[in-house]
Simulated scan of single mutants.
Amino acid sequence: MAERLAGRIAVVTGAAAGIGKGCAHTFRAEGSTVIGIDLSGADIDADLTDEAATGAAFSQIIAEHGRIDVLVNAAAFAAFEWIEAMTLAQWRHTLAGELDTVFLPTRAAWPGLKASGAASVINFASANARHALDGSAALAHCAGKGGVLAMTRQLAMEGAPHGIRANTISPGFIRTEATARHLAEVPDLQGRVLAKNMVKRLGEPEDIAWCAVWLASDETRYVTGADIPVDGGATAW
C-alpha cells in the first residue's frame, strides 16, 4: 500500500536518529512531505526544549506550507539512574526531555494542525509507562513517559473539535544509537528484555514507523486517545 500518506505535510521531531529517523524515512516512502526537526542534522535544527526556538521553527513551517497534517513527537532524551543516585538536575533534565519536547512542539504546531482540519498527533509513551523492567534504572524515564500517556488523552479531547486526533505509541525496547549504549552499560539487559518479550527479538525503528504510518493515515480516522503497544508482547502478560 504505497503512497498511504500522499499529499500530507508531516513534521517529525527527533528526525536525525532512532525512531524519529525511521519515521521520517518511512513517511517519505509513503508519499508524505516530511520536515524533520532535531538539534542538528535535520531539515530544521532547533532545541525543542527552548520555547522561542520551537516557536520559530513551527512558524517557519506553517508560513511555508500553510498547515500541518501530521506531527510526530519523537524527540526525547533521558538520564537513567537509580533513585538513590539520581540528582534533582538529572530528574528535571529528563522531564524536560520527555515532556517539554512534546508540549512545546504541539503547542507551536496547533494553529497548523487546526488549519489541516484532519490532523494526527503521534506521541511516544513507552512500555515503561506501564511496567518497570528488572535491572533498568529508569525512574525518571518511567515518570516522563507516563506523563506523555496522560497528556495525549487530554490533547485528544482538546483537539477533537478541530479535527485533530492524538494517540500514543508505546514502544518496547527498540534498537537505536541511544539504547545500544544502554545495552552496553547494563549487564544482561538484553536477556532481561527478551525474557519479558513474547517475540524473542529486540524491536527496530521501522517496527514503530509502520504503526506511525497507520496512525497518520485515513485508516485511523476513528482512532483518538488510544495507546498502541508495539513491544513484542512485553506488556501483555
Rank of each mutant, 00 (worst) to 15 (best):
L5A: 07
A6R: 15
R8L: 15
G14M: 04
A15C: 00
G18T: 07
I19V: 13
T26V: 15
F27M: 12
F27D: 05
A29M: 06
E30K: 06
S32E: 10
V34M: 04
I37T: 06
S40I: 02
D47C: 04
A56S: 14
H65K: 15
H65C: 07
R67C: 13
R67H: 14
D69G: 10
D69A: 05
V70C: 03
V70N: 05
L71T: 04
A74R: 04
A75D: 09
A75W: 06
A78R: 09
A79R: 15
W82P: 00
A85L: 10
T87F: 01
T87E: 09
A89H: 10
A89L: 02
H93I: 00
T94A: 01
E98T: 06
D100T: 02
V102D: 04
R107M: 08
R107P: 04
L113Y: 01
A115P: 03
A115M: 08
S120L: 09
I122S: 03
A125E: 00
N128A: 15
A129T: 01
G135T: 11
L139Y: 13
A143H: 13
G147S: 12
G147V: 10
V148Y: 12
R153S: 05
L155C: 06
G159D: 09
A160W: 11
A160T: 02
P161F: 06
I164Y: 13
I164L: 14
I164E: 08
A166F: 06
T168V: 10
I169A: 01
I169M: 05
S170K: 11
P171H: 10
R175H: 11
R175I: 02
T176M: 08
A178Q: 14
T179G: 03
A180S: 14
V186H: 03
P187F: 02
D188G: 03
L189M: 08
G191Q: 02
G191T: 10
R192V: 11
L194N: 05
M198T: 15
M198A: 15
V199H: 05
V199I: 13
E204A: 11
I208R: 07
C211H: 01
W214F: 14
W214M: 08
L215G: 05
S217V: 06
S217E: 11
E219M: 03
R221V: 06
G225F: 02
D227G: 00
P229D: 01
V230N: 00
V230T: 04
V230E: 00
D231V: 01
D231H: 02
G233I: 07
A236W: 05
A236I: 08
W237F: 12
W237I: 08
